[in-house]
């Protein structure tokens, strides 16, 4: 099993699981709760939205044991630094925690980050005492800037949000890993368990996903697959893989051949 001392530390807090899971797009709140449980995730993302004034509607948090999870409110849907900051301030008031997943989007089609606005918002939020985890492009210069501003982690995308295209540029992720000291968490793009394992084998500190689990044909089974993939990928990274070679290298000894 995983080394018990191999903790993920973000903003001074320790986590045993390196899989972070979103809570959107599930068929029901029951399914959300079950998938979260099976995934083993300790950090779960939520969005900040208007309360439905129709009292008959149930709320997600009625189904989630808040003692078991650290809520990571996001700024999904924000296209300016001002909107993102406003959302984070509301999230802190609603949840009484400083953790935020900061995303400032550039356009609706790609949902790629607007990195200029992201940096502006990150600066304000760090100043306000937030533990900022920014969703960002897989660009080492940007990640270093976010780290320098005081972000607690960087969360480069593997591919567009909800695309399931996997880690499209593993070399960029590798360069980020070699040049920033804060945890690097691949956020967005994972489609299957192998994608999560690839992120972890690159040396990422964690993986954040939502659609890959919530929209799988069997979200509960996929939640378990992702849990195992993240553990396997982490172990594989720590174990140290063999170098890639072009030609074969026999596993059975040549000595003692009798033919």
């Amino acid at each position: 099993m995983t080394n018990k001392t191999d903790k993920l530390v973000i903003g001074g807090r320790e986590f045993s699981s390196r899989l972070m899971v979103g809570t959107g797009k599930y068929a029901s709140f029951e399914q959300t709760a079950q998938a979260l449980e099976i995934s083993g995730a300790e950090i779960i993302t939520v969005a900040v939205r208007r309360v439905n004034l129709d009292r008959s509607k149930e709320s997600l948090l009625d189904y989630i044991d808040l003692k078991k999870y650290t809520l990571l409110p996001n700024t999904a849907g924000c296209y300016t630094a001002d909107d993102a900051v406003r959302t984070c301030l509301l999230a802190r008031e609603a949840g009484m925690s400083d953790f935020v997943k900061l995303e400032v989007l550039g356009d609706e089609k790609t949902l790629f980050p607007d990195n200029e606005e992201l940096l502006k918002a990150a600066k304000v939020l760090v100043g306000e005492g937030f533990t900022v985890l920014p969703y960002c492009s897989d660009d080492v210069i940007l990640c270093k800037k976010l780290e320098d501003l005081g972000c607690a982690a960087v969360m480069p995308l593997g591919a567009p949000i909800g695309s399931g295209l996997g880690i499209r540029n593993p070399y960029n992720i590798k360069i980020i890993l070699e040049n920033v000291k804060v945890p690097v968490i691949v956020d967005a793009g994972v489609g299957s368990a192998s994608d999560a394992a690839i992120a972890m084998e690159l040396g990422c500190d964690g993986v954040l996903m939502n659609t890959a689990i919530a929209c799988a044909q069997d979200p509960i089974a996929m939640a378990e697959a992702m849990k195992l993939a993240v553990i396997a990928g982490r172990l594989s990274y720590k174990a140290g893989r063999i170098p890639r070679k072009l030609y074969a290298n026999a596993s059975s000894p040549l000595e003692g051949m009798f033919l």
Binding site: G22, G24, F29, A47, V48, R49, R50, V51, A94, G95
Partner: peptide, 9 residues
């Protein structure tokens, strides 16, 4: 504005 947490990624 009265807001709360909902499912999100």
């Amino acid at each position: 504005e009265i807001v709360h947490f909902v499912g999100g990624g």
